[in-house]
C-alpha cells in the first residue's frame, strides 16, 4: 500500500524500518537523538531504539565520520548525519582520506559501508553557512557513492539502498524538498538502485539534466515550455557518482539538445562533468550548444533577499535558457 508522504517522512520511515530489520544499523550525529534532528529527520527513533542506536555525539564532525568508518570496518552499518553541508569540512579528512580510500589502500582488506546523510541547499534564507550544496567536492572521489534524491519515493528507496550498499554513500538531502516533495511512498520495503537516472518527464525536443530540488523547478519550466509547443525531457541524475552515462546519453541522443541545471556554483561543478560527457560522447547528435544554468561563482549564497535571489536558479531563468536553446 502506498500513501502520500513528505520527503522527510519517507526518509524517516526508511530509517525506522531498516533499524528494525537490521540490528547492525545505528545512527550518530549532532542533535539527532532526543530532539530528533534539526529538521526532525530522525524523529521518534531515539524513543524507539534508545541512545545506543541513536547517538547524540559531541560537536565534532571529524570523529562522527571516523566513528562511523571504524564501526563499519567491524561489521556495523552506521548512518552518520552532518547537520548542514556547510559544516562537513571538519570531516573532509575522514571522508576523503579514510572512507573513500580504506578499501582501495587495503586491497579489499577493509570495507567501509557507511551512509553519510548531509542536509544541503538554499532558498530558505539560510545565508552563507546554511545554504551550500557542495556535492561537487565528493564526486571527485572514486570510492564514494554520491546520491541526491528529488522525490519522496526515492528518499525512502535510495536510503534503503544506501544503507545496504557495501560502499560509503554520501546521501544529500536538499532541505527545500523535506516538506515540499510529497508523493506516493509504499509502506513496505523497496530499494531504488543507486546508479540509474530517472526520466521524470518524457519529451522529444530537449533534454534537461538536473538533480535534487532543481528537478522540481525544471519540471515546472518544462510545463511552461509545453505551452509554447516545446517538448522537454527532464532527467533526474539522482546518483551523482558513479554517473549513469548510458541513461544521460540516451536522452541527449534522442532530443539532440542538452540543458544542464544545478543550484550550486558553476565552475568545475557537477554540470561541467555532465557537459564533458555529452560533448565527448554525443557530439555528433547535438543540434545546439550544451547550455548550463547554475549558481554564480561567488563563495556562497548571501543572506539578504535580493542577493539570495540573484544566486538561486528559478523557473524564469530556466525557461529563458530553454527558449534560446529551442531556437537551434
Amino acid at each position: 500500500m502506498a500513501r502520500s508522504l513528505n520527503f522527510i517522512d519517507a526518509l524517516n520511515e526508511a530509517l525506522h524500518q531498516e533499524m528494525e530489520r537490521d540490528e547492525r544499523v545505528f545512527l550518530l550525529g549532532e542533535d539527532i537523538g532526543v530532539s530528533g534532528g534539526v529538521f526532525k529527520a530522525t524523529a521518534g527513533l531515539y524513543d524507539k531504539f534508545g541512545e545506543e542506536r541513536v547517538m547524540d555525539t559531541p560537536l565534532a564532525e571529524g570523529i562522527i565520520i571516523a566513528a562511523a568508518i571504524g564501526s563499519a570496518m567491524v561489521g556495523l552499518r552506521p548512518i552518520a548525519e552532518i547537520q548542514f553541508t556547510d559544516f562537513v569540512t571538519p570531516a573532509m579528512d575522514q571522508i576523503i582520506q579514510q572512507a573513500a580510500k580504506i578499501r582501495y589502500r587495503s586491497a579489499g582488506g577493509f570495507d567501509c559501508p557507511i551512509t553519510v546523510r548531509i542536509c544541503c541547499g538554499g532558498g530558505v534564507s539560510g545565508g552563507l553557512y546554511h545554504s551550500q550544496e557542495n556535492a561537487a567536492w565528493f564526486v571527485h572521489e572514486p570510492g564514494l557513492k554520491v546520491v541526491m534524491p528529488s522525490t519522496a519515493y526515492d528518499a525512502k528507496g535510495m536510503m534503503l539502498a544506501a544503507i545496504r550498499d557495501p560502499n560509503p554513500v554520501i546521501f544529500f538531502e536538499h532541505k527545500k524538498l523535506y516538506r515540499t516533495a510529497k508523493g506516493d511512498v509504499p509502506e513496505g520495503d523497496y530499494v531504488v538502485p543507486i546508479g540509474p537516472v530517472a526520466v521524470r518527464r518524457e519529451g522529444k525536443d530537449m533534454t534537461v539534466l538536473t538533480y535534487g530540488f532543481m528537478t522540481q523547478v525544471a519540471l515546472d519550466a518544462a510545463e511552461e515550455m509545453a505551452k509554447q509547443g516545446v517538448d522537454v525531457e527532464v532527467v533526474d541524475v539522482r546518483t551523482l557518482n558513479p554517473l549513469d552515462k548510458d541513461g544521460i546519453l540516451a536522452s541527449v541522443r534522442k532530443t539532440s539538445k542538452c540543458l544542464i541545471v544545478h543550484e550550486d556554483k558553476r565552475t568545475m561543478g557537477i554540470g561541467a562533468e555532465l557537459a564533458a560527457i555529452v560533448a565527448e560522447e554525443a557530439f555528433e547528435d547535438l543540434d545546439g550548444p550544451i547550455v548550463r544554468i547554475t549558481g554564480p561563482d561567488i563563495p556562497a549564497i548571501p543572506f539578504s533577499p535580493p542577493l539570495e535571489k540573484f544566486f538561486l536558479v528559478n523557473k524564469e531563468k530556466i525557461v529563458a535558457a530553454m527558449e534560446s536553446l529551442a531556437k537551434y
Binding site: 570523529i63 564501526s71 570496518m73 556495523l76 579528512d93 580504506i102
Partner: peptide, 25 residues
C-alpha cells in the same frame, strides 16, 4: 592491523571508531 593513510592522526580516529564498533558488538 589497519592499513594506514599518511594523514597524521587519521588512524587514531579510525581506530577510535573501531573501538566504538567493538564495544557495540
Amino acid at each position: 592491523v589497519i592499513t594506514p593513510a599518511s594523514s597524521i592522526a587519521g588512524q587514531l580516529n579510525v581506530g577510535t571508531g573501531v573501538a566504538l564498533g567493538l564495544k557495540k558488538l
